[in-house]
Design a protein around this nucleic acid. Structure first.
Lengths: 142, 142
DNA sequence: TATAATTCTATTAAAATAATAGAATTGGTA
DNA sequence: TACCAATTCTATTATTTTAATAGAATTATA
């Protein structure tokens, strides 16, 4: 069980866009995240297809396509790697044990709590990030 | 984010051993789970190394090496695929953002709830399975 | 029309997961 | 003691997923 780099980079990029609140060039974001533009291009094309970000016509960069409070972390993860722990939850017909299987019960619980945790908005994440930024800035003066 | 077949097969096998409460041959378990003996052999060697199961000398099969109440689902998962969502939780030094990163906060929460859900004993899972067995047996008579 | 960016399509590389093959070992028992 | 049926070990291969790069096409405008 691992979070892919796609999800990690993608979510950080989206939080970055929320904090800046202005169009940002791919180049700028890739510089901050220290991820190649080419790879981020891929990630952004998925985010765009999912309606999470959009590009401003010609040279002006990317912005969130909705308000940060309307985008959830889970939307980003689903767009970038999906959230299918096991197939027997979505498609019980593939396993004749589904519905009478203790491990399936466990996987369902797992899915439930993970979805709950990821049901956090980008606004909330941006707020957390802003506070952490202030904190780490002040650290220099301690 | 996905549960590997190793974890799925392994956990089911361990629950099976708990329910039967007697030594079971690899052949028997592989037959029930419909997984090749060769593949299950691999999985069992990891479970054995982790001290979850042990084999009875000569022809007698495998048993749990502790009481089902003393084995947690998370032990099985850790033995078979690990639980490292992102490296920056275990090794904050690999990322200079660690400690002041909103997404890291999220990954930590995720790790927390997943570990909590997987902190269920094999005894509890076996109890759930027994109830489901009764239920699905009775289904025929409805 | 030059340009600086996004966007699209294709390809490759690397890693993780899944599965198989075959031989070695083990210890009871015929 | 030799056989047997099982576990166990080592190696290999196949498949899938993830990660990353390359290059060309497109786009709106300065």
């Amino acid at each position: 069980m691992r979070i892919s780099t796609r999800s990690r980079y993608g979510l950080r990029a989206v939080v970055e866009l929320a904090i800046e609140g202005r169009p940002m060039l791919l180049k700028e974001i890739s510089g901050r995240l220290k991820v190649s533009m080419k790879y981020l291009d891929h990630i952004f094309s998925s985010l765009k297809r999912a309606g999470i970000i959009r590009s401003i016509k010609s040279h002006s960069g990317y912005v969130l396509s909705k308000r940060p409070s309307k985008i959830k972390a889970i939307d980003v993860i689903k767009a970038l790697e999906g959230l299918s722990f096991v197939d027997c939850i979505e498609s019980p017909q593939i396993c004749n044990r589904a519905g009478s299987c203790a491990t399936q019960v466990l996987w369902k619980r797992l899915k439930g709590v993970v979805e709950k945790i990821l049901d956090i908005s980008i606004k909330e994440l941006a707020d957390i990030q802003r506070k952490l930024n202030v904190r780490s800035k002040n650290m220099y003066y301690i």
